[in-house]
Structures are given as C-alpha cells and as structure tokens.
Simulated scan of single mutants.
Amino acid sequence: MLSLENNQLKAVFSQHGAELQSLIDQKTQKQYLWQADPKFWGRHAPVLFPIVGRLKDDQYQLNGQTYHLKQHGFARDLDFTIVDQQADRLTFSLHDSAATRGIYPFAFDLQISYQLTANHLTVTYRVKNPTKSKMLFSIGGHPAFTVPLANDESFDDYLVEFQPVGNYQKIPLVGNYTDSAAAQTDRMAGIKLSHETFKNDALIYQLKQKTVLELTTSAHQHGVLLDLPATDYVGIWSPYPAKAPFVCLEPWWGLADDRQATGNFTQKTGLHQLTSQQEFAAKYTISIF
C-alpha cells in the first residue's frame, strides 16, 4: 500500500486499479471512505475506463468487428505502474497491451494523479492517444463514502446538496441502460437520502457548469465535498435493497449505453475523441470536514 499524508488527512492507495482505498481525518481518525465490505460492494473508489457503465449485452461493434467489454471497463482490475511519488503527490500509469487490445482496439496512455493539500485530495485523469488514428473513450470515478459517519446517526439523516442551486437534467436508468428520451430537467437544491432513493439504481445528472456536491447531515457537522470543475455527468448511488452504509458520488466523462443504442461504438453517447497525440485532462477534488 502507498500513502500520502499531512496533519489533516491521510490517503492510502493500491497499485491495483490505482485505487484510493482509505481517507482518514488525522485529527478524529474518522474513516470517510467505504471499506469495501463484500457483503455490500467490494470496492472503494474504482477508476472507470475506457467506458462508464454498461454496454448492451456487454459488447460493441467497431470497424466491422465485435468486441466484448464488461461494465466500467478494465482499468479498475489491472495493476498500474508508479511513475511519480512525492510527499504530496502520487501518479500511476497504465498503457495498452495485447490483452486490452483484444477487447478495446486502441493504444492509450492513462495517468491518474493524486495531490494532497490540507484537507483536499485532487484526482487528475490524463488520457493520451499515442497513435496516428483517432481514439474513443470514456472515463470516470466511483468513490464511495461512509454513511453514516457517526454511531448516533442513520443513513436517513444525510443529504446531498448541489451548489449552485439550479436546473439540472436528470437522466433515468432503465435496467442497466440510460433512457435519454425520458430525461427531464429538475430544479436541484438537494436530495434527502434514504435507501429508497436508489430503488431505480443510480441518480444521474448532466452538469454544464462547475458544480459542488456536499454529502452531509442537516446539522452540517461533518461530511464530504466533491468539487467538479468541468465534469460531464455525476452519478449518485447506493445499492438497493441492500441498505448499504455508503453513498457513491461519481464524476463521469461518459455514460452507459442508451436503451436505444445500436452497438456502434462510434455512435455511443458520452464518448470523448482524441486525435493523434492529443491529450484529455480532467480532475475533481474530494474535501472532508
């Protein structure tokens, strides 16, 4: 295990999936990150690449060939290389291989960096296309946060607040797939949580401006801030009907297949495209209080 720490925060990581595995307040020793109890969900904060969500029948077509790719892609299940390690920063790297090209026929350079500053952990994704051909991909985060954070609280004491308050397009899920035709605009200030909130799976919102999500109680005694400066979508999820003691706040640059998707990868909703030698960069910041 690898770690970054200062007098406010300690973050622990694994090379497997370049995954954040622990986020502890140094003063209170409170653990903010879900500890991957397999009874509910055996992950902490996986990286979603080269797709977000699920493909229809876990497959897609590209250049006359059919490829099979499971939900959220393969990066979360591969070992990364450490390319930079400093007192306040850690960078992991993953490249394509014969195995990845068999299910995703693109060359890629993926870097995931973690920067610790005070009570903030900034996560940065960099995707580079090293070839002369265009590259198609999505990427996203899936951090899960402990709810409740105190023994005298319940899951229902928590809410997710949106800043700024305003109109956000909500994209519903039908089974594993999005239903863009049924998307509607909701005026969002906050979501009062209960396990029933997730009876239809994740809540998905399109973001068109800098957005901050705050996961906290009505008393605002402690919680998590997720700062999303330029994120395409956010998913909010907890497994139902399991009554799991965590909530995921997920910044996405991509979406699951639409229920009307044809399987043609070039037409997939939410994909990003890179031309030769072009690089994509995106980031988000987790803050605790």
Rank of each mutant, 00 (worst) to 15 (best):
N7H: 08
Q8S: 08
K10W: 06
G17V: 07
L20C: 04
Q21C: 07
I24P: 09
D25L: 09
K27M: 00
T28G: 10
T28W: 15
T28I: 07
Q29W: 00
A36N: 05
D37Y: 14
D37V: 03
D37P: 12
F40K: 04
W41T: 01
W41N: 02
G42M: 15
G53T: 00
R54W: 02
K56N: 08
D58H: 00
Q61K: 05
Q61L: 15
Q61P: 11
Q65K: 08
H68D: 14
H68V: 13
L69H: 05
F74A: 08
R76K: 13
R76F: 15
F80V: 14
I82V: 11
V83H: 03
Q85Y: 15
T91Q: 05
F92N: 13
S93G: 09
H95P: 06
D96L: 06
G102F: 12
Y104P: 08
F106H: 10
F106L: 13
A107Q: 02
F108M: 05
L110C: 00
I112R: 04
Y114E: 10
T117S: 15
L121E: 12
V123H: 10
T124Q: 08
M135C: 13
S138D: 12
G141C: 00
H142F: 06
A144Q: 10
A144C: 15
V147E: 09
A150T: 08
D152E: 09
D152M: 09
E153C: 14
S154W: 04
D156N: 11
D157L: 06
Y158T: 01
Y158A: 04
L159N: 01
F162K: 11
F162G: 10
Q163F: 06
V165L: 15
V165Y: 10
I171Q: 01
I171F: 03
I171V: 03
P172A: 00
N176R: 15
N176Q: 14
N176D: 05
N176S: 12
Y177P: 02
T178I: 05
T178P: 12
D179P: 04
S180N: 11
A181Q: 08
A182N: 15
A183R: 07
Q184L: 13
Q184N: 10
T185K: 12
R187V: 07
M188T: 03
M188F: 11
G190M: 15
K192A: 13
L193I: 02
L193N: 01
S194I: 03
H195P: 07
F198T: 04
A202S: 04
A202N: 01
L203C: 07
I204Y: 00
K208C: 14
K208W: 10
K210F: 14
L213N: 11
E214M: 15
Q221N: 10
L228A: 00
P229I: 01
A230R: 07
T231D: 11
T231N: 07
D232S: 05
V234P: 06
I236G: 01
W237K: 10
S238P: 14
P239T: 04
P239D: 04
P241I: 01
K243F: 15
P245F: 02
V247N: 05
E250C: 02
L255P: 14
Q260I: 06
A261I: 11
G263W: 13
G263C: 14
F265D: 01
K268V: 06
Q278M: 09
F280Q: 04
A282I: 15
K283A: 13
K283F: 14
T285Q: 03
I286G: 00
